Computed example of a mutant assay.
Amino acid sequence: MRANVWIAIAATAATAAITGSQPGHAGTAAPRPAAFAQCAGCHSTEPGKNLFGPSLAGISGRRAASLPGYAYSPALKKSGITWNAKSLDRWLTAPQKAVPGTRMPLGGVQDPATRKALVDYLLTI
């Protein structure tokens, strides 16, 4: 039994080395937090499936307003943001302050623990 555990650990490490994935980053799904329900009303997590807002699949490391097939606000197009833990946390705290002129209707997620759970999830989808 122990050998199987070590084989599984070695296989996971080898896959991470080959794909560049790390725990808590794209490729390793974090649990979907309950707070994501407010996001899911407008955003899909399926690649290529835009709703009222753009798909959030593969957002980690993606430049803001770069997903083909979605009409972003001019403000977000000019923002120069690349989505990572810091930029997502700032965005989710107050989108209109992060990028004045954005069309994102969210007023902000004020609870730091809730925001962290959302950011951790977003970085893995």
Rank of each mutant, 00 (worst) to 15 (best):
26 A>S: 10
118 L>K: 04
81 I>Y: 04
105 P>T: 02
93 T>F: 12
39 C>W: 00
90 R>S: 15
72 Y>G: 05
102 T>L: 04
105 P>M: 04
41 G>K: 10
14 A>Y: 12
58 G>R: 09
37 A>D: 07
32 R>D: 05
51 L>W: 12
121 Y>V: 00
106 L>A: 15
55 S>D: 09
10 A>D: 06
45 T>N: 03
57 A>T: 08
6 W>G: 07
69 G>L: 08
31 P>W: 03
12 T>G: 13
60 S>R: 06
64 A>V: 06
69 G>V: 08
88 L>W: 05
38 Q>N: 13
77 K>H: 06
14 A>Q: 10
97 K>P: 02
26 A>K: 10
13 A>E: 06
32 R>Q: 14
71 A>F: 09
68 P>F: 01
15 T>P: 05
119 V>Q: 06
124 T>V: 12
55 S>V: 02
119 V>H: 03
70 Y>S: 04
81 I>K: 03
107 G>Y: 01
107 G>C: 05
25 H>A: 14
121 Y>R: 00
69 G>D: 08
34 A>W: 12
72 Y>F: 13
53 G>Q: 04
31 P>K: 02
37 A>K: 00
29 A>M: 12
13 A>M: 14
6 W>V: 10
24 G>T: 06
8 A>Y: 09
124 T>Y: 00
116 K>W: 02
75 A>R: 07
54 P>L: 03
77 K>Y: 04
14 A>N: 08
95 P>F: 04
28 T>W: 13
83 W>C: 08
107 G>S: 03
109 V>P: 06
41 G>L: 06
110 Q>N: 15
86 K>E: 14
45 T>P: 02
108 G>D: 11
22 Q>A: 14
103 R>C: 07
19 T>C: 06
112 P>Q: 12
66 S>H: 03
38 Q>M: 14
71 A>R: 14
77 K>C: 11
30 A>S: 10
125 I>V: 15
60 S>N: 13
74 P>Y: 10
39 C>L: 03
54 P>Y: 13
2 R>S: 15
